[in-house]
Amino acid sequence: MNSNRLKKNKWNKRKKTLISWSFILPNFIGFFIFTLIPIVFSFILAFSDWDSFSKPKFIGLNNFKELFGDATFWISLKNTFYYSIGVVPLTMICALGLALLLNKKIRGIGIFRTIFFFPYITSLVAVAVVWNMLFHPTMGPINQFLQHFFTTLPGWTSSSKWAMPAIIIVSVWRSMGYYMILYLAGLQGIPKELYEASSIDGAGKWEQFRNVTLPSLRPTTFFVLIMLTINSFKVFDLVQVMTEGGPGRATNVLVYEIYNEAFVNFRFGYASAISFILFIIVLSITVFQFRIEKKNAQA
């Protein structure tokens, strides 16, 4: 009888596990086949030679050897860093500034929040196309406005010097609303007592901002920093629509280079090696930022 009960218990447990799995399986099957397997294969592919027609061949580090001698690769890496160094701080400052302005209980604040957030949800192609017209070097409204103050005008997307700043401006304009929402959530989580206490201590607005707001926002800032940095290394759409990597190679970024090697030149192995580099960069940024944050939290 006892063993019967044990059997029943075991059967019950198995049934429970099966039911639990029935919830997860529909998503897991798709996730496993179309995400996990490709991730594993991407690492193998990085060490192979494959043009999609013949059989893949394992070639060890040859892809990377070629890559490190490839001038276009280094240019795309440099451009990606340039984009990142421009976009990350600017977006952070704009997002925080907007959030501070909007974190007030005054009438109609919701409308302004919607307006600042709106560029983020509008389709990228439409936005990139309209900005290209605004940036038109001779007839565009931006240069028409600037000519009142400057004699030499930037050529924006038609000049290799100004194409990247133009993309950076559009990117900041488009995504600041998204990060503003994150900062607003962070600001609303700061206890009012902290401000009251520092007010009693005679702290001015600026001191309050420095000693209460900024430290309390640290987790948000940390999260925004990671998200922004990682996203900046994945930039492709804006570049493709605004400049197609040009003029010359002035806005050729890492993902654009991956796209070119894989889907224009059909060098799947070589392109995967660049993807591998992208992965290493993103991974080290995440690890590095977590380390720093841990140190800060302890200090």
């Binding site: 397997i37 490709p38 991730i39 592919l45 999609s52 894989a262 992965f279």
Partner: peptide, 16 residues
Amino acid sequence: TIAVPWQVYMIPQFIM
């Protein structure tokens, strides 16, 4: 996998 950008594995996915 959220930390792995889609651009890293889009090639094997495409081959698949």
